[in-house]
Amino acid sequence: MKAIRDLFESHSSTSTETRPHPFWVMVRKEIAGHIRSWRFLVLLLLILLTFWGSISVALGNIREVVNNVKDPDRFFLYLKLLTTTEGTLPPFHVFLNFLGPIVGISLGFDAINSEQQNGTLTRIMAQPVYRDNLLLSKFVSAVTLVGSLLLTLSLLMIGGGILITGVLIEAEEVFRIVGFTILCTVYVGFWLGLSILLSIIFKQASTSALTAIGIWLFFTVFYQIIIDLIVPAANEFSETDVIRYNRQVLNLLRLSPSQLFTDATTTLLMPSVRSLGPITMEQMAGAIPSPLPLRDSLMIVWPQLSGLIAATTMCFAASYYLFMRREIRG
């Protein structure tokens, strides 16, 4: 952490000769503020602990997994490191499914309202900067932090893996892991965008935090229950109906960002996943259980990724709309 801080501080002193754009001044200040805060330290510890826990469990089981002849993915050692589990601890990408929202929410829930409460918003707005730059700098700084944190972790894992197993990583795995990192960042970005939006709507930071957590809980816990209630029981339908209903249920579930994230990470990290919906026997016939090439996996993931980006953009657009004409008086 010290190193990251030094990096930013040395950066600030070297780029001093040119006149920095106010936007980057703001981003730098935000990043410095996050890094120095206890909140970020706690989040960092949480992520490091889960990462360490899940990777060490995976390392313990890696020999059996790689020797499992039935698994078409067994040669992707590094992907296995990220996805293997023995059942006691979920793998890292499943952890991130609920850690991501927490990171996003906690980095953004007080973005605007705390500035308003402290009386800093009026002061900053009285400087010659565009109003949207403040909003954007809050978003960009947090996403930069999360992105670099996840990338660092992935690189650490690859480096550690090479040291421990002695197996060199393949280019495809690198791309898949980088893709996974980008996906995670986008996922965190969605929750960040949502919590920034809530921080504009609600004057109290605690209200916006609570609302954000409420939305998250709704999508992780209650959404599935509601969908199950709406869709009629499947046993009275013919096979084609069942498939149709299944598809509908999946599509409804995909309105939830965590479902999109799960779909996308599974496809990226498990190359043998070839479809995210139900497949009929005819489709399965003749298919060889082998890993998909990266390009095909990306094709499957694409709708999920664009869905997440669209949701993030929507949150952000709403934030802009609300913030640009907002009375900034504290």
Binding site: E17, R19, P22, V25, R36, N118, T120, Q127, P128
Partner: peptide, 22 residues
């Protein structure tokens, strides 16, 4: 002011926002 920053840092931040070279 940003309570976690010193007075000088707060002031320098505003200075930079006003385009004063670093």
């Amino acid at each position: 002011f940003y309570d976690t920053m010193t007075a000088l840092e707060n002031l320098m931040y505003v200075g930079e926002l006003n385009g004063i070279p670093g």
